[in-house]
Amino acid sequence: MKVNAGQRVFNGFSTLLLILSTLFFIFPFYWIVTGAFKFQTVATQIPPEWFPLKPTLQNWVDLFKNPVWRWTLNSFIIALVEMFAVCLVSASAGYVLAKKLFPGRKIIFTMFIAAMALPKQVILVPLFTMLADFGWVNTYHGLILPAIGWPFGVFLMKQFAQTVPGELIEAAKIDGCSEIRLFSTIILPLLKPALGALAIFTFIASWNDYFSQLIMTRSTSMMTLPLGVATMQGEFTTNYGIMMAGAALASVPMITIFLVFQKAFTQGITMGAVKG
């Protein structure tokens, strides 16, 4: 009885802690969504109005006076292309590093691990200089191509590819399966949980990559949605209602992508935890 009572107390405390943590992390999103329907004077008043008593759509009307659809399209093009390219390149490189024997394999993998420790800001200046020499500044490929060789993606895929049985690969080769067919019909389906997790990570990282997009873009037509929303902040005054509306709009695709890949993401995290 003492064990059961202690277990009930622990379960109740854990549930309460989980609920409080959930409310703590959801509150900023709630504040952004409700603030998107408040007048400027209400959004900044103290004490705050926790729920809009007189909701307004004026913030959304003012938001769409800007080229928001163009910014959204740019964000989707960059994030989706990066997501598919990173998943494909990372899966290919991870499979080769995990299952192919060739000279220098350990050195190459060590270089990927070392690259993960480098902040993006460290390589931004030489990267910008190289892209400027190529004439790729303020272009889609200038924003997309540098992100394709993501060291974390290669590391993640390599760790998961190691779990693929070598006997399965050898049996496929004995049956006359080509390398491309082996990779596309056997390896990729087995890596689906890891690919789901990597797809979420890549999309969110690309969608929120404000710093690189700020450096690499020059025109309003090439801005992404987070960057465009940030430009609405004035030098002396800021309409927080419009900025909250833009932030709420920018969060919808990330939530959607997570819900679409949630099952694969959960499986990927679980498999990684079991592997240790």
Rank of each mutant, 00 (worst) to 15 (best):
190 L>F: 03
164 V>I: 15
155 F>G: 06
196 G>K: 09
213 Q>D: 05
210 Y>V: 01
210 Y>Q: 00
200 I>R: 05
169 I>E: 06
206 S>T: 00
201 F>K: 00
183 F>L: 09
224 T>K: 11
152 F>A: 04
155 F>M: 00
191 L>P: 03
226 P>I: 08
180 I>D: 14
208 N>P: 00
158 K>G: 07
203 F>Q: 03
161 A>Y: 04
178 S>P: 12
209 D>I: 02
199 A>M: 07
189 P>T: 02
182 L>E: 13
197 A>V: 09
166 G>F: 10
197 A>H: 10
162 Q>D: 10
155 F>T: 09
166 G>H: 14
187 I>L: 10
202 T>Q: 00
178 S>G: 15
170 E>Q: 08
186 I>P: 03
156 L>Y: 03
187 I>T: 08
176 G>Q: 10
177 C>L: 13
219 S>L: 03
220 T>M: 12
172 A>K: 04
190 L>V: 05
178 S>N: 15
154 V>K: 03
204 I>S: 02
194 A>K: 01
202 T>H: 01
164 V>Q: 06
204 I>C: 07
190 L>P: 08
200 I>E: 00
213 Q>A: 10
154 V>T: 01
157 M>I: 07
169 I>T: 04
216 M>L: 12
195 L>C: 09
175 D>W: 05
158 K>I: 11
192 K>I: 09
179 E>Y: 15
217 T>G: 06
222 M>L: 14
209 D>L: 00
186 I>D: 02
216 M>V: 13
175 D>V: 13
210 Y>C: 04
193 P>W: 05
161 A>M: 05
214 L>S: 11
